[in-house]
């Protein structure tokens, strides 16, 4: 029982990260390699607001979300927009990796190297379910992730903005003919991704501790989750995230600890080779030229 909850909780975080990576990927076809760093800034800034400015959790979170939105916009303006047309160049790989490194090092200088104990939601309260100790925080991780996923899906499917995001992700030039300012849509996607990152940061930080290296290992897994599920796809992000969480938990039981990640990534590589569009491309969305559902 506890293993399942842990798998789902970790999986939800991977899903949230994959979702945020997908939000940006869908409109730009680029992978935000600085995403882990943005999550870290979300966690570090809310930590400092909570512990030093003595703010309550909600205010601290709102401010952290705001900080992350600004940070994401700056990342877009500085290391993406300046590159111009993204279809024919891959310089973003370098600029985004670079942005991540700069953010990490700045955080190291600002916040120090020492990991900080980030508070669990509901003070780490544990409730017994079927004889296992389940943390309310873990249940919250799953709930918050699912709620964000559903809200995002509704926004994307039902609103004017969502239609525009899908349009830009499919045909950026045609979207401009509709009067949609593609670069504004992309900017907003960066901002949303930053906001989601702040929330992911607050959810994962009690487990990894808040430090400038807190997302080094889970960051890579988020990319894995995104690829397993299919990039830029909400359902795929969740399927990828949850399956990765479960794979890890199963791997934990069968192989010695150090090999867990190797197993997870082996499975990721197999999925990518067999289903280049991710698990969701398997049967649902492979009609004609339309390989994977966008967003």
């Amino acid at each position: 029982m506890q293993e399942i909850v842990t798998a789902l909780a970790n999986g939800s975080i991977y899903a949230l990260m994959a979702l945020a990576i997908g939000i940006i990927y869908s409109t730009t076809q680029i992978i935000n390699f600085a995403h882990g760093s943005v999550i870290m800034i979300g966690a570090m800034s809310s930590y400092w607001l909570l512990s030093f400015a003595q703010m309550n959790f909600i205010t601290a979170m709102l401010l952290a979300v705001l900080i992350n939105i600004v940070l994401s916009i700056v990342i877009y303006k500085v290391s993406v927009e300046k590159l111009g047309d993204l279809t024919n160049n891959s310089r973003w790989i370098v600029t985004l990796f670079g942005a991540g490194i700069i953010i990490d090092n700045t955080a190291r200088i600002l916040f120090g190297t020492e990991p900080k104990a980030y508070p669990y939601l509901f003070d780490g309260k544990v409730i017994p379910i079927f004889g296992s100790k389940i943390m309310v925080h873990e249940i919250m991780m799953i709930l918050v992730a699912v709620v964000i996923g559903i809200v995002y899906q509704i926004v994307i499917q039902k609103t004017n903005f969502g239609r525009a995001v899908r349009a830009v992700s499919f045909r950026p030039d045609t979207s401009r003919l509709m009067g949609i300012r593609s670069n504004h849509i992309v900017l907003i996607c960066f901002a949303i991704s930053g906001a989601v990152a702040a929330i992911s940061g607050a959810l994962i930080a009690p487990i990894t501790f808040a430090s400038y290296t807190m997302t080094y290992s889970i960051g890579i897994k988020a990319f894995a989750a995104a690829l397993i599920g299919g990039l830029g796809n909400t359902k795929g992000a969740f399927i990828g995230g949850i399956s990765l969480g479960l794979i890890e938990e199963i791997a934990n039981m069968v192989v010695p600890g150090g090999l867990k990640d190797a197993i997870s990534f082996l499975i990721m590589i197999i999925v990518i080779i067999v289903l280049p569009g991710g698990i969701l491309s398997a049967k649902l969305f492979n009609k004609g030229e339309l390989n994977a559902e966008k967003v």
Partner: peptide
Amino acid sequence: PEGRQIFPQH
């Protein structure tokens, strides 16, 4: 536009 360019998944 040329080729109609409708959004196939909308």
